[in-house]
Each structure stands twice: as C-alpha cells, then as structure tokens.
Design a protein around this nucleic acid. Structure first.
Length: 884
RNA sequence: GGGGGAUUAGCUCAAUUGGGAGAGCGUCUGGCUGGCAGCCAGAAGGUCAGGGGUUCGAAUCCCCUAUCCUCCA
C-alpha cells in the first residue's frame, strides 16, 4: 500500500487535529510494511491479568512470546487505553488521564532497533509528516545500550548533549527488571522528549527493545532472545498538545470542547487556572473513560472493572457537587464524548442513550448515598462539639467512607463549614488498615505460560467438527498430565484428570456460556472417558480419565459425544436466543445480554434491566418464546465477514471483540445473533420452555433461569406430585388447596389470639380482692395459675392504673418452668424501691434469675414446686421494705 | 475474592446495660372543615429477613443462610 502522507501548508503544523495525527501515524507505519490493526477492546475479558487494556502491546502478548502462529510480523495500531494508577493526578497536571489513546508500532521478530529509531525520527521530523524542529527533541537511552546510543548519535546525528544515558528504573521494560525481576522477556528502551516553551521536556514516545530473557538474580541473568521484538508507544493526547501548541492535553481539539461542555452543564465558565477548572478537567476525563467502558457493557458495580467505573463516576459526581451541582448532570455528556471520538470510534454514537441512562442511575444512587450519610454526619459533628474537639477524626471518616460510601472530600468540605479540620493522615492510616484487613490482592502473572505453548507454535488449534456431527475421528496431538506434555499415558484408574488434545474433534469446549461436552474417545483396545471439555487458544481440551488400554501421541481415535446431553444443550442454547429476542421485544433494546450459562436443558441468562419484571410481562415473554418454538422456525448458521453480519443486523454485543469472520446463527424473522455455540435444527425441537426464576444479580442486571425439553417436563411432574401430596394431607382436591390452606391459617391465628385471655384463671378483680395493705400501699402477691408473662404484665398494668400506690408480684407455672413478673407503681419507685431487686430474691427460691427495669421486672426458674415458697419470700420482702 | 454495615407496620425509620414492639406518612372508621400534605378522635396493620444457639427472658449477644448497601483488590 502506498503511503498517504498528510501534507500541511507551511506554518499550519499547529493546526493538526487529533484525527489527522492518528491517521498520519497509521499511514506512515503502513508505508513501512506494518499491518494496520484495529484497536483492541478497552475491557479485554480474555486476559485475566488486566482489567482494562493498559497499552498498545496488550493485544499482541502472544505474538511477542511466540505463543501463536504469526499472520504478520509488523503491526501498527491506535489503542484506546485506561489506567487508574495516577488517578489522583488527573485534572491537576497537564498530562495525566485515565482514558487515553496510544499510537504504536510493533515488530515480532522482524525489524529491530535501527528501523524503530530511524522511523520514529522520520515520522517526527520529516516535512511531509509531523515536521517537528529536530532541535526541540532530546533522547534517553539505557545506560548499557551502546547500540541505541550509536544509532541516535552517529546515524541520526542527534548531538551528544541531547542524548542521556539513564538507569534501569527509567529506561528498562519492565522497570528495573535486571535487578528486581520479574523473570522473562525484557529489554532496554529509548525515550523521545519534546522541549516545551517553558523549557521543560515532555516524553512523547517510548521505544521498547525486547531483546533479553531474564533468569534469576544478577549478574549474568540476561540472555539474548533468539527473536527480538519492538514495542513502541506514543501518547496521542500529549503529542497533539505539542502540535497544537497548547499547554495542557485537555486543551487539544478532541478534549477542550468536552471540558467546555462540562462547564456548560454546570452552568459556569471554564477557568483553566481555578480549582473548578481542575474539577472540570477531571470530570471530562472520567466521563470519557466511563462512556467507553459502559459502551462495552461494563456497568458500575462492586468488583473488578465494574468497581473502577463506579469509582470514576462517583469522583466526577462529587466534583460536580462541590461546584454546587445537586442534581444529576453527568449523563448529559456522553453524546459530546461520542462526537469528539466519532472518526475513530463511530460505534460509540450507537449506545450513548444506554450509556447516559446507566450514568444517570448511578448519579442518582450516589446522591442518595450522600443524603443518607448526612444525618449520620450531623451526629458525628454533634459528638465532636460535645467533646470540645475541632477536627474530624480519620477513623470516623474512614468508617463513614468504607461502610456507607460517604466520600472524605465532601466530609472535609462540610467540616470546614463548621470551622472544623480534617485529619487526612489519620484517614489514610485507617484506610491502609482497612486494606490490610481486606487481604492483599493476589498478584496475577503478566504473561501466563503453560504446557500448551509448545503446541501453539506448531498449529492454530483443533478443528471443531461438532456443529453437524457428534462423532468423528481425530489424531491425538497432545496429552497433558500433571501440567506437563507427555507422549503417552498408560495408567488406568488415575485419580487426577488428564487432558487430551485432538487435531479435529466434535467435542465442544466451554465457551460463550455453553458448558463443555462429555463423552468417550475410543480406539481398538482402549477408551477414554471425557468428563468435561475446555477451550484454550483454539484448542479443545478433552478432560477425563483413561478407562482402558493406553493413550499414544499420533494415534487416531473415534471421538463420540454424549449425544443425549448434547441435544439438551442445543435445546437450551437455542432457547436462550429466543429468550433474548423476546426480552428485547417486551422490555426494549436496552435489555442486552450481560452473561449467559447454557447447561443441559437449563439456561441462565443475565441482561441489563433496571427493575424486576412483573408476572404478566414474564408470562408474555415465556409465551412468545413458546410461540416461536411451536412455529418450528428453521435454525441456520453460516460464516460471513464481520462487516456483512453487522450490515444484516445481527445482534452484536458491544465490547466483544469479534474475529474478522464470524458465525451468525439465524432463526428466520425471530433472531439473528453472532454465536459459536451448538443449536437445534428447528426451534420445534426445543420442546417446552419454562421460566422458573427471575431475580436481581446486581444493580441494573436481572437474571432469568429457564428449563427446556425433558427437564421442563420433569419439573412439571414434580410440581404436580408435590401439590398432590399437599392436597392429600388436607384431604381436598388440588384446585381447592389454596382456600383450604387460607382457612386453616386464619383459624390458627384466631386460636392463638383467643388463648391468653382464657389462660389466666385468676382475674384482676380477684387479685385486688386478695390484696393486703401496708402503710397505705396495697400489696398483691399471687399465683396467676396459667397465663404467660404477657398476660401477667397486662394484669399488673391494670392494677397499677386502678389502685396505686401498689406493688404486684405474680407467678405462674408454664410446663416445667416458673415465670415471675413484678411491678410497682411510680410512687414506690420514687421511694427508691426496685421491682428488679424484689423479684431477684423470689427467683432465687425457684432456682432462677431475673431482672428488669425499676418499675417492671421479670424472672424465671425451674423448680416448679417451689412457687408457693417464692411467693412467700416475696411477700415478706415487700412488707419489710414498705415498713421501713 | 476479602473487610464493614443493613434487613422492624404498606412506605421512611426509632427502640438506652438483654426485661412491655414504637413514631411519622399512608390505609380504614367517625366527626369538624371553603384551599395548597386541612383539623380532631379512634381503629386496623408485625413470623422484628430466615434458621440454629446462649439466657429465667433475645428485635438486641453468638453462629449459619439469603438479600441489599459500601469500601478494598
């Protein structure tokens, strides 16, 4: 392809737009033979080592490690990236972002240091390209990298004064790798700096030369790699800032309008130097990051990337609040982001409505959290005032934050309004302790390696032939036992499962939510039971146990999938597509898939939706799915280019990175989805689809569980059997069961209510009649003969109202226990008498304990026979007390 | 994955050291009233999330489960 250089009229260099720079970079490296690849997704779900794509090289990890067969050896990309490491600096400094774009060129064992350096220089300085003045550029190289130094000094002609040798902490990748590790591929790097008008030098491009394999601690731990790589990264925003002659990345053509838009929705002017200016830049950055992340279906939540989105959103809302915003405002901004990023990412505009509503929901929820915390805060300030303090304790702030999500910045502001300080040191200290308690996060390897790596170098993957067949012959190309490749396996009855890899197989490896197949591998004289099938890098891994004979590499086997189970999986998977379509129809287009599990005649489907689904709608959804089953719609799958599938309106999941050729599963007039799974030939084969549960799985996401085919039948049989059993117990026909149960519940309730009134054999009047009087105070001590503690309390209340001053102590035997309740009227309480003390003496007699409030106390004991003695003791005690 | 917290009347939430389950709003009834949350009196409404334990006694203390909130990774 011929290079298309971007030409500029003299003096117009500072007019270069971000879109132009992106295009110029990619075009330039295409002219050097690099293959232009699209940006990887922002959330690489295939890569467990990162939450977000942190750099351009991320999508090429396997290429760098030689872990895959290469289709090209030179590439160039503009990669959207997200990092949160420097989140606190965003907005404060001119160059920090969470979301940013990285321009990169890459070599996998192809060109190396000389080309990388020459081309970087050419792109930066050539008249047809960026045309930067060479005297404004300076260079750093790794201290021991004489090769790079010579290329810069001798071949490019950079004056030695502007080439600096730096240590391994600055100019090595990974930083400080030679001395600190980790082991593995690494190499020196060389950075290019641009001299700003204020005299500072800003790094714009980092060239990484991976040329070593590190093994163990120094010295002599770096051995040359047979295949050396180039990985370079040039920050789009900062380079733009240089070219456009603006002092901050936030003032380039694709960011400044966004910052201005933030100012507008906040109803104020953007003043770059002010505190609010800093806040506006931070809001712009965070909303840009979140728009991209939510576009890829990452909803704000409580773990992993979801949590990052939530935190970014809340920080932005908080900034707005501190500028006086009391209502949601952030949700107005995604359309502006989409407009700014329209050229490289046109798809963003398709989801701004959904993105905006997700953001608005989170804004509302956060504002509610703040409101909920405010009265708690008032208590906190009241406490501080009482203690005569003038500072919010860090521990209190941390508790408020970690437990109720109340942001410390806001607390600080509120404190200041009361002329109160805020102990940031104490807060940080408490947060550190919280982090400790939460347990340090386990570290994940940047590059995972395994026994499959050797296989990956020789072939692309297993050929999957299981769409049409459940039986096929295949050659054994890998046997993995105890995490190691071996040539054969002879032990029958081994405990730990082993893995067999075939060159072609009908076994479906778990992916796209569909669980793996089970079945048998068979050959003359032997067989291997497959209990699960997994998928890794295009290979189907048959996991299981050798049951007979021996396994040998290179031998041919017959692979037979358990086809009853597979049929059940097909039913569940096709039903999932029908369900997805019905959800979209009844709930709206926002109800998109968030996750899915397809098991034998069982499916679990998670999708975005804000509220629970009422029974009628759920019934309608179930009805529509079954209508489509009864219509026996043919199900067809075919491979086609991604662009064609998009054109034909296939349902695509945003944030999935699809290969160039995709498989589209079509149910005529009903559903069109990109899917690698196995399906029935006609929806009629699904049988019954029955929704069995609808629940929340996290905020904004609902889960529907359904059964299909035979399992649906089984479930109905069981439900009917259970009903029949219950009907049998109540001796009524099934149809009359609800009325019968309701009647019985009502009866039980009435019986319970009626009981206490009848239980007390001795009424209040009788008790009062038996009272004795000492010094003007009536004393009632009696056996209530039935009646629980509640009844006795009521009796005491009544007597106190009727005949105070009075002291009452009642006892009663309930089963094998004695219950005592004592109460005295206010006058006696004022004289210093205590019902609690009184009852304790009596309780001791029946072998129990008790206590309570001064005017009312309760006790119990186990010596049923001693109740009369206890009452006697109580009578003596109160008479003595009243006599004094 | 881990830490902290919550779950009480239809709704929003109280309940001092373990010792009578409450308020406001809503509902119903009666009365008063020319209004935007009208006023007065009265009533109904509770498996204190569920299960187990400690205790004479648990909404309250301990353990388990479920759901939600929140922070950390």
């Amino acid at each position: 392809m011929r290079a298309r250089s971007i030409t500029h009229p003299p003096g117009a260099l500072d007019q270069m737009k971000a879109d132009d720079l992106r295009e110029a970079y990619l075009a330039f490296f295409e002219s050097k033979g690099c293959v232009r690849r699209p940006s990887d997704v922002l959330v690489p779900r295939w890569d467990p080592s990162v939450l977000f794509t942190p750099a351009g090289m991320n999508q090429f990890k396997d290429h760098f490690l030689g872990k895959c067969k290469l289709e090209f050896t030179r590439a160039t990309t503009c990669q959207k990236c997200l990092r949160t490491g420097d989140i606190d600096n965003v907005g404060r400094t001119p160059r920090h972002h969470t979301f940013f774009e990285m321009l990169g060129n890459f070599s996998f064992g192809d060109y190396f240091k000389r080309e990388a350096i020459h081309w970087a220089w050419e792109f930066l300085t050539a008249k047809n390209w960026l045309h930067m003045p060479p005297e404004k550029l300076s260079i750093t190289v790794y201290q021991d990298d004489d090769e790079a130094y010579r290329i810069w000094a001798d071949e490019i002609g950079v004056p030695p004064a502007r080439i600096t040798r730096m240590g391994e902490d600055d100019n090595f990748w990974p930083a400080s790798a030679p001395s600190q590790g980790p082991d593995g591929v690494c190499g020196p790097c060389s950075e290019i700096f641009y001299r700003m008008p204020d005299g500072s030098d800003v790094e714009i491009w980092n060239l990484v030369f991976t040329q070593f394999n590190r093994q163990g601690p120094p010295p002599d731990n770096l051995s040359p790699l047979p295949s050396r790589n180039i990985d370079t990264g040039m920050g789009l925003e900062r380079t733009c800032a240089m070219l456009q002659g603006v002092e901050s990345n936030f003032h380039i053509d694709i960011l400044r309008p966004l910052v201005e838009a933030v100012a507008e929705v906040c109803g104020r002017r953007y003043d770059p130097a002010s505190d609010d200016g800093r806040r506006m830049r931070r809001i712009a950055d965070h909303v840009r990051a979140c728009t991209f992340a939510i576009h890829e279906n990452v909803l704000p939540g409580n773990n992993e990337e979801k949590y990052v989105v939530k935190r970014l959103l809340r920080r932005a809302v908080l900034d707005g609040r501190q500028m006086g915003m009391r209502d949601p405002f952030l949700h107005q901004l995604p359309p502006v982001v989409a407009e700014m990023m329209r050229r490289p990412y046109p798809e963003l505009a398709e989801t701004t409505g959904r993105v905006a509503s997700v953001i608005q929901r989170e804004e509302e929820s956060f504002l509610a959290t703040i409101d909920g915390g405010l009265d708690r805060i008032e208590k906190l300030f009241a406490g501080i005032g009482q203690a005569g303090g003038s500072q919010v304790a860090g521990a209190d702030a941390a508790e408020l934050y970690t437990t109720y999500g109340f942001p410390p910045e806001l607390l600080e502001t509120l404190a200041a309004e009361r002329n109160c300080g805020f102990d940031w040191d104490g807060f940080r200290h408490a947060m550190e302790a919280h982090g400790q308690r939460s347990g340090a996060g386990r570290s994940v390897e940047v590059f995972t390696s395994g026994p499959l790596d050797a296989l990956k170098q020789t072939m692309h993957g297993s050929e999957f032939v299981g769409y049409d067949a459940t039986e096929a012959t295949g050659k054994i190309v890998g046997i993995i036992a105890q995490d190691a490749l071996c040539d054969s396996l002879a032990e029958v009855g081994h405990a730990r499962p082993v893995t067999v890899v075939l060159d072609r197989t009908p076994f479906y490896g778990e992916s796209g939510g569909q669980v793996g197949d089970t079945g048998w591998l068979e050959w003359p004289g032997g067989r291997f039971e497959v209990v699960d099938t997994l998928r890794e890098g295009g290979f189907m891994l048959h996991i299981g146990h050798l049951r007979e004979g021996r396994l040998d590499l290179g031998h041919t086997v017959t692979a037979r999938v358990d086809d009853r189970r597979r049929a059940a999986l097909r039913r569940a998977h096709s039903a999932t597509h029908l369900l997805h379509a019905a959800l979209q129809h009844f709930l709206g287009s926002h109800a998109v898939q968030q996750g899915s599990k397809v098991d034998a005649d069982l499916l679990r489907f998670d999708f975005s939706h804000g509220s629970s689904i009422d029974e009628a709608t759920l019934a309608a959804i179930e009805g529509m799915v079954n209508d489509h089953v009864l219509a026996a719609v043919p199900v067809a799958a075919r491979l086609l280019p991604l662009a064609d599938a998009r054109h034909e309106g296939a349902m695509m999941l945003f944030g999935e990175k699809y290969p160039d050729v995709v498989r589209m599963v079509t149910m005529d007039g009903v559903s069109r989805e990109l899917c690698g799974g196995t399906h029935v030939a006609s929806t009629g084969q699904i049988g019954l689809v029955r929704i069995v549960a609808e629940e929340s799985v996290s905020a904004g996401t609902r889960r529907i569980t359904a059964v299909t085919g035979l399992r649906a039948l089984e479930r109905i049989r069981q439900a009917e059997q259970t009903l029949a059993q219950a009907a049998g117990v109540f001796k009524v026909p099934v149809a009359e069961l609800p009325q019968r149960v309701a009647a019985i519940v009502k009866e039980v309730k009435e019986l319970k209510k009626a009981k206490p009134a009848a239980a007390a054999a001795v009424g209040p009047e009788t008790l009062l009649a038996g009272a004795v009087e000492v010094g003007g105070t009536r004393i009632v001590v009696a056996d209530m003969q039935g009646g629980d503690a509640g009844a006795m309390r009521q009796a005491i209340d009544l007597l106190r109202r009727k005949a105070s001053p009075i002291a009452v102590l009642l006892g009663s035997v309930e089963g094998d226990k004695v219950t005592l309740v004592a109460g005295i009227s206010k006058e006696l309480e004022a004289r210093g008498l205590s019902a609690g003390n009184w009852i304790r003496d009596a309780a001791a007699v029946v072998g129990g304990k008790g206590g309570g409030r001064p005017d009312m106390a309760q006790a119990g004991g186990k010596l049923v026979d001693k109740l009369p003695d206890a009452l006697a003791v109580a009578r003596q005690a109160i008479e003595r007390l009243l006599a004094t």
